[in-house]
């Protein structure tokens, strides 16, 4: 078997994939921000034991964690649209679904980080009569958040690698660009290899950075 590899095709596909990569990174960044904020909200709601709301949040998290991301993408983009008439772009739908999906994981990360703050910190805050909200913002979160940064970093990398699922609803992210190029030129080998290399390089660099962060936070 001989491999028919064309550097010309690589050069041709490169700018196309780069454009796709920009979309991939945009989705990753926006979904990640959403998951950081929403995950924290979920964690605080659950840990504050607000009646009904805490239980609902728990059920929602369990449901999201127990179903595939692609099913959620389809449910949100196609079903929601056909049932309610709300029309969101594929890009925005992708950001929301990935962000909310990963918020259900980051909320667990926050929870662990918050639980790692010694009980005495809550007690000291109570003894000083700090209002509930202040206890979170001035005492608990400043101690919890640095500890969870590496885990958030790892989930961000995971989100980056999940973006190709959005091909299913037609988002022109990197894999979709590769598919497009392959379909037009029949040069699938170069197109998908290139997409794979992009993912590999970026994920690898990011995970090295996360590991560095981990060792820094660990020595705090």
């Amino acid at each position: 078997m001989t491999v028919d590899w064309s550097w010309h095709a690589v050069a041709e596909a490169f700018p196309l994939l780069l454009r796709g990569l920009v979309v991939t990174l945009e989705i990753t960044v926006l979904a990640a921000l959403l998951s950081y904020v929403l995950g924290l909200v979920f964690a605080v709601i659950r840990m504050s034991r607000i009646p009904v709301l805490s239980q609902l949040t728990f059920l929602f998290i369990e449901a999201v964690r127990s179903t595939p991301l692609l099913v959620q993408v389809f449910m949100f983009y196609y079903v929601l649209q056909s049932q309610t008439g709300i029309l969101l772009s594929a890009f925005l739908s992708g950001v929301i679904v990935i962000g909310v999906h990963y918020a259900c994981y980051t909320s667990e990360v926050y929870r662990a980080g918050i639980e790692a703050v010694p009980k005495g910190q809550w007690e000291a805050a109570t003894a000083l009569n700090l209002p509930r909200g202040r206890v979170w913002t001035s005492v608990i979160l400043p101690q919890a958040v640095p500890r969870v940064l590496p885990a958030l970093g790892n989930y961000t990398i995971a989100m980056f690698k999940e973006t190709p699922l959005l091909l299913g609803i037609g988002v022109l992210e990197m894999l979709n660009r590769a598919k497009e190029y392959g379909a037009e030129t029949f040069r699938v080998l170069e197109a998908y290899t290139l997409a794979g290399v992009f993912f590999l390089v970026i994920s690898y660099i990011a995970s090295v950075m996360v590991r560095r962060l981990e060792s820094r936070v660990g020595t705090l």
């Binding site: 000291a124 000083l128 009569n129 700090l130 209002p131 202040r134 101690q143």
Partner: peptide, 30 residues
Amino acid sequence: RRKIGMVFQQFNLFPHLSALQNVMEAPVRV
């Protein structure tokens, strides 16, 4: 409870705040 202050066996200072900020936090916020 505002009339009561407590000092704990394990100090329970806020480790991310300076000594000064530890002392200032409650008077400002409460």
